[in-house]
Design a protein around this nucleic acid. Structure first.
Length: 572
RNA sequence: GGGCCUGUAGCUCAGUUGGUUAGAGCAGAGCGCUCAUAACGCUUUGGUCGUAGGUUCGAGUCCUACCGGGCCUACCA
């Protein structure tokens, strides 16, 4: 048995996430967690909300709420939606938790002790009207290069020229529009990542099986120009984790907080502490997942994230961990994803473009989305959501191949034998061939799941469903019933068992539907089928079941067209 | 500007370290079946593998250039 620590990139607090966010981290992480649990492995699957930073403060201000109240509410909203999608976190934490405050301050102290933190005095734009320092992106003005009047302080969107905020002509705050800006001197802490560059490089080099997407981004940062650059880890904000050295004040850093990207990954660890607290466990219970000196040696740690998160997970966070000199678990495998586009453009949280998680659940059950998103996961390149593709895939795979299989088997049985598993008959060559075929196909499915090849796993699962329809066609119980009802009974008995088998195998992808099938079959026997022959004899003759409601209804052309229009604009 | 990813049948994608006639699903065509959500099964039509060169006995696979799509480029997160 392996112990799997699994984390999903933690979604930002400022709004409800769209399907692109979902498929890039939480959903594949859930697939993997559910699969590993089903295989009998011990799993700790953690996620949280990422609550600090300028956008959170601005979103709260826009909502007219204190930022901590806003975060508390949004956390609950996201938690509820996550439950709706069947995301099986062992704990859904918060980066603003007391555990994360303490651990972030502790690690900063350790890094300071190791001489990996130093102070830098720098100039930054301050907005008097907003009463805050502005990140470069939050300053707008006219581009000195092309004259575009809404260029951002870091880069002009129009001519793509990289800018410094002081380059802008007539700069203004993107928050309030105020032109009452001034440049102020401010001190910040920098993490001396450069000192750990070689260690990080060696570590990355040792990861031969990581996706190219993951390693190439890390390598670029390590070797571009002067190599890995040091990074500011503090900000002049009100909302965040106060800059402290352990539990001691940090002279000169009063009123400042840690940068959100410093504390957010630490929440992966702190979240385990939150999990322990929420479940009446001890520190030792969570440390055995995270401390290699306290039992985490045999843990395999896998992170899931979108490609934009890679530098922080391959470099900054490992630098924090390594630099602390403490025995924290380093990630073993990083699964990164490209982006999902929406109907010819990008999903966009800020622009409200695309389908958002709450909207998705309001029109169809989670399993429809889970299936489509996972079977089209943007693994090798960006992929695209279109309503047409969604309708076609879901109708064909879920309704026709799987759903209809369940329907034809259970209804045939009911009409000929009643809602009871029939007895009699013995396996012939057709059944033995099916078992061989299923054994091969299940091994293929397992192989892809272990490797986190999401699309291939979906294809392999679908092939297992198809095998049922092929078998039924060959065995043709509706024909044999006329002359040899015992054989027809055997075919139906096996097919009913196939439904249970499919429910078990499919649960990582479509947990809700799988549970309904288990319920309809009146069974809770959900052990993974290491032996197909045995797995097809779980439901014995005489076992009662019921014909389930339609497992997956089809999406009509009218619905497709309606949704296409409904979601063509922007939200709000 | 720099780095990386990507371009394979109408669509969505597979194609191990270069090795015999380039694969799958969907869509299309034909046949079969009638238990079923007008579902299922079988057969089958589609590709000069972005373009042009090069290396090689042999390239979708390696090299170069070009064209197209995308991401990142360190103060959004």
């Amino acid at each position: 048995m392996t112990r799997h620590l699994i984390t999903s990139a933690i979604p930002y607090i400022n709004g409800i996430k769209h399907l692109g966010n979902l498929v890039g981290s939480q959903l594949p992480a859930d697939l993997f967690a559910r699969y590993q649990r089903a295989r009998g492995n011990e799993v700790l699957f953690l996620c949280a909300t990422d609550e600090h930073g300028t956008p959170a403060e601005l979103a709260a201000a826009k909502a007219g709420k204190p930022v901590d109240d806003f975060c508390t509410e949004m956390h609950e909203v996201q938690a509820e939606i996550a439950r709706g999608f069947g995301l099986s976190f062992d704990h859904f934490g918060r980066s603003s938790s007391p555990q994360n405050h303490a651990l972030t301050q502790h690690l900063a102290g350790r890094l300071a002790d190791a001489d990996l933190i130093y102070e830098v005095s720098e100039k930054q734009v301050y907005s008097n009207a907003d009463g805050r320092f502005l990140p470069d992106r939050y300053i707008e003005g006219t581009c000195p290069n092309c004259g575009y009047d809404s260029a951002r302080g870091d880069q002009c969107e129009n001519c793509t020229k990289q800018l410094d905020p002081t380059d802008l002509i007539d700069p203004r705050s993107a928050v309030s529009g105020s032109t009452d800006l001034e440049v102020r001197e401010t001190k910040h802490l920098y993490l001396r990542q450069s000192a750990l560059s070689e260690q990080l490089d060696t570590w990355i080099d040792s990861k031969h099986d990581w996706p190219i997407l993951t390693t190439s981004i890390a390598k670029k940062w390590l070797h571009d120009g002067d190599g890995l650059r040091d990074r500011g880890i503090t900000r002049d904000l009100d909302w965040g984790i106060p800059v402290k050295n352990g539990d001691k004040d940090w002279p000169g850093m009063e009123g400042k907080v840690f940068y959100v990207w410093f504390d957010a990954p630490i929440e992966y660890i702190a979240c385990a502490g939150e999990w322990a607290e929420a479940n009446g466990k001890t520190d030792a219970d969570w440390e055995r997942w995270w401390r290699t000196d306290r039992g985490a040696d045999d843990v395999r740690y896998t992170q899931f994230m979108g490609k934009d998160n890679v530098p922080f997970h391959t470099l900054s966070f490992p630098a924090t961990i390594i630099g602390s000199g403490e025995d924290w678990k380093l990630v073993d495998y990083i699964k990164s994803f490209n982006y999902l586009n929406y109907d010819g453009g990008q999903f966009s949280t800020s622009k409200g473009r695309g389908v958002f998680m709450d909207q998705a659940l309001s029109i169809l059950p989670a399993d429809y989305w889970r299936w489509w998103l996972l079977s089209h996961a943007p693994e090798s390149s960006d992929s695209e959501f279109t309503w047409d593709n969604f309708q076609t895939s879901v109708n064909k795979d879920l309704a026709d191949v799987l759903g209809n299989f369940v329907s034809r088997v259970t209804k045939f049985c009911r009409s000929k034998f009643g809602e009871t598993v029939p007895e009699g008959g013995e396996y012939g060559p057709t059944e033995l061939a099916l078992i061989d075929d299923l054994t091969t196909k299940i091994h293929a499915y397992e192989g892809h799941m272990e490797a986190m090849e999401v699309r291939k796993s979906a294809q392999a699962l679908r092939a297992i469903w198809v095998a049922g329809n092929e078998y039924l066609q060959n065995a043709a119980p509706w024909t044999t019933f006329k002359t040899d009802p015992e054989t027809a009974a055997m075919t139906v008995r096996l097919s009913l068992n196939l439904i249970r088998l499919y429910a078990v195998l499919s649960a990582p992808f479509i947990p809700t539907a799988s549970q309904s099938l288990m319920d309809a079959m009146h069974t809770d026997h959900d052990l993974w089928p290491d032996d197909v022959t045995g797995a097809l004899e779980v439901l014995k003759s005489g076992h009662e079941f019921e014909v389930p409601e339609v497992t997956f209804r089809k999406i009509t052309d009218d619905e497709r067209d309606e949704w296409q229009i409904k979601f063509s604009g922007t939200r709000d």
